[in-house]
Amino acid sequence: MTKTHLRIAAALVAMLLIAHPGRADEPGPGGQKVPKPVTGEQVYRTVCQSCHMADGKGAEGAGRMPALAANPRLAAAAYPIVMIAKGRGAMPGFVGTLSPAQAANVVTYIRTHFGNAYAAPVTEAEVKALYGAPPPAER
């Protein structure tokens, strides 16, 4: 096969993979080009604050979006790491979505902001040790 043939074959295979059954009402194939946040603050602003709010105080409606501000549970770095990795309740896990470096940066950020003062920076290695494999395909 020529190089072009290979590209076509790859495109056709991709088409088959994409057209899987039972898909939720989603926008379609667009929207994949998202600015990649790097620093802890960037990750917080572009991901976390959508639920935990810009001030880290969470919110209350029919249920509760937990506050990260002044939260004693952040004393142990493993707690927010596992929360980001596995999620809890409605919060999805972010393994496969946020890299260990991004997770380390944002854990460091929330542990040193919003009234939290747990100084020691969390390392990528600490995150990797707890991160685990990404979840299987949605169904």
């Binding site: 056709l12 088409m15 994409i18 039972g22 898909r23 379609g28 194939p29």
Partner: peptide, 15 residues
Amino acid sequence: SRIWTQMAFFMNYEF
């Protein structure tokens, strides 16, 4: 352009 991703979207049962 990855146009096949749009073409495949329209093929999907729900869409």
